[in-house]
Design a protein around this nucleic acid. Structure first.
Lengths: 283, 283
DNA sequence: GCAAATTTGTTCGTATGTATT
DNA sequence: CAATACATACGAACAAATTTG
């Protein structure tokens, strides 16, 4: 099937990885050795490695070598109803911490947030259903798991809440009880629902730097836009927007609806093999 | 910031795209002209184009040229509670059709399904909570929007339901009322909840062929594992697994929880620009 | 329907730069 | 500092896909 030379070499290397000859974490032969082994030019070998890199099977590090990737995905539950309703009342920060704890992951967040006033634009204005140019407060938080960057969370709140007395929104430190609970206590703004909008795209420069993703754009990020809706005489009204960005190669998401047994699901390990065609077929 | 030549060229081309000088759908200069324009070698030009391709900004077609990509993402609602409870009772097929209709998309499915007996293995056995090697029925359906491949849906049902009388599971044609409703009518198996598990990965060969994705693995697919749970004295018990695969560059997903105003959300168009840093900052 | 022209895809060779050990 | 390994860049040739005449 693979007609071109670099494809043939790539498929052969993939087979060697999947057969266990090259286990996760192990180092490939260097490029010169691969040149000798396959009798191809160095450019062709590099093209084959690029094919494997695009599939997250290997990873090259300058000065060191090329290594078989070991993946250990983190699973995050997006649904709010997994336990009483932490997600609806506490905010996703708290929920994420509790889930991480239940999964035995060392999670932490930067104690300092980036807090900036902005004019609402584009998506922000559109999802919050406010005029472009309206004042909003941006609050950005970095989260880490095992000291490695895990998520970048950016929240937007209409500026009017500060004017109305929710002055903690300006503070650069975390709001203890969660912003949703705080806004309810302070202003009586009650969240009655939310919408998650999930998008996969290439990281921008900031994201690539923060997550230490290769700058060639081959590893995507998953972006979750969560719009919170508050009770209002005119019907559910958007009052907050939280955008979470995660590297797509190491993160999975779960949504529970109705009754589903245990609330926390395990990561799905996909057969790197694409062999799934005939193995399980009853003939 | 971009030190290497190909990065500089790529960023310049990106700027020309985002400024509107090269609108969506338009054709770039050919490689030779870019060589002349930037005074770089053809290989370097091609590497710059690859950088843009990885970000889904452009697309090259052999014999024709390189074109600015026009994206028109499809949004799918995953939550079941968006209208009475079609998702819980009717099955996602029906729900998807109704959503497509509401969005004015021409959606159709192959009238013929692939139906095969299998032995449960790996993820399938694990999510259905059955022994590896247990018999299951695989039902696979292809869906199209505007005559272009949109999703690949593969469902697994324990073989025992056929033995118990749900013989339609063997049929290669669609089950009118939806499988969930059929199993309820026929056997009294009632779905009380489901779990969606979302994963992003590179397409396998079959998927790349079906979706006509480039074989270099740069465009990922989004995979949604939906495990349906049935009422049971021992608690919620998995009774079906539906795996939907979608190309990641043209699909977005929405989950509604609680009350959220309109049920259908519009696609999010991300500023291809990564300029979002200072524009909206109040100084 | 065929041949020519155009355009991207693959492959080789070679040289130099940069990061890590 | 030296050795090693990947990254970038140049030049060249032929192959494959598509459009055009």
């Amino acid at each position: 099937m693979p007609e071109s030379l670099y494809r043939t070499i790539a498929v052969d290397l993939r087979q060697r990885i999947e057969s266990g000859e090259l286990p996760a974490g192990s180092q490939l032969e260097n490029e010169q050795e691969l040149v000798d082994r396959y009798g191809a030019s160095r450019n062709t070998i590099r093209q084959a490695i690029r094919w494997l890199t695009n599939r997250r099977l290997v990873e090259s590090r300058p000065g060191q070598g090329t290594f078989v990737v070991k993946i250990d995905p983190v699973v995050t539950t997006l649904s709010a109803d997994w336990k009483s309703d932490k997600g609806l009342s506490g905010g996703e920060g708290k929920a994420a911490f509790e889930e991480a704890e239940a999964r035995n992951l060392e999670m932490r967040a930067d104690p300092l947030l980036t807090v900036e006033p902005r004019f609402a634009e584009g998506i922000v204005a559109s999802l919050l259903q406010i005029q472009e140019g309206t004042g909003v407060i941006l609050r950005q938080k970095r989260r880490y798991i095992k000291n490695k960057p895990w998520s970048l969370e950016t929240s937007y709140y209409p500026m009017k809440y500060i004017d109305q007395g929710a002055s903690l929104l300006r503070s650069k430190s975390d709001i203890e009880q969660g912003v949703v609970a705080y806004l309810k206590e302070q202003l009586g703004v009650k969240q009655i629902g939310f919408r998650d909008h999930i998008v996969v795209r290439a990281p921008d420069d900031d994201e690539a730097r923060y997550f230490q993703l290769p700058d060639d754009g081959t590893i995507s990020v998953i972006v979750v836009f969560r719009t919170g809706f508050a009770d209002d005489p005119k019907g559910p009204t958007p009052f907050r927007l939280t955008i979470n960005v995660y590297p797509a190669d190491t993160n999975q998401f779960v949504i529970n609806s109705g009754e589903v047994g245990e609330v926390f699901a395990n990561p799905i390990a996909f057969m790197t093999s694409s062999a799934e065609s005939d193995d399980s077929l009853i003939k």
